[in-house]
Each structure stands twice: as C-alpha cells, then as structure tokens.
C-alpha cells in the first residue's frame, strides 16, 4: 500500500470518507491549512508526560 503526505490528496480522501462536498475555495483553504494543523496535532504526541497516561475519557455502563 502506498502512502502520501501530499495535503491535497489527504484532504480529498478525508472529505470523501466523510461524505462532504465543499467549494473549490474551501478545498484550497483546507489544503493550505493542513500542514500547520497536522504539525500542531503531531506535537501532542511529543509530550513526554503523556506517554504512559490514560486518556481523559468518561464512560459509564449505565444512564
């Protein structure tokens, strides 16, 4: 399986998977912002103290 880091391809795939149709201008804007967004998100994986941390999720088996 090939992989790509091309933002345009990534955004195309994500939009298709989500079933969303955006305008060409909006598509271009998402593609432009994607590298910065991805960098910010990826930086969360570099927080050392989070390495062995449980996620802050709440689930209860009752209502």
């Amino acid at each position: 399986m090939s992989t790509t880091t091309d933002p345009k391809t990534t955004v195309e795939v994500l939009l298709a998977a989500a079933g969303l149709t955006v305008t060409p201008e909006e598509f271009d804007a998402i593609v432009r912002s994607y590298p910065d967004v991805r960098a910010r998100i990826d930086a969360m994986y570099a927080v050392p103290m989070a390495k062995e941390e449980e996620p802050q999720l709440v689930f209860t088996p009752f209502v």
Partner: peptide, 25 residues
Amino acid sequence: TRMAIVKGMLFSAADYVQAQRVRRA
C-alpha cells in the same frame, strides 16, 4: 462555522485519544 467544525475531520481517532492523554497529563 463549517470551516471550523470541518477541522474535526482532520483529527484521527488516535489524535483524539492522544488529546485526552495530553489533557490528563
């Protein structure tokens, strides 16, 4: 609004869990 919310589409399931780990840490 739609351009803000659509950013959630860029967040994978693992990204979301990692965000919650960062929050707890």
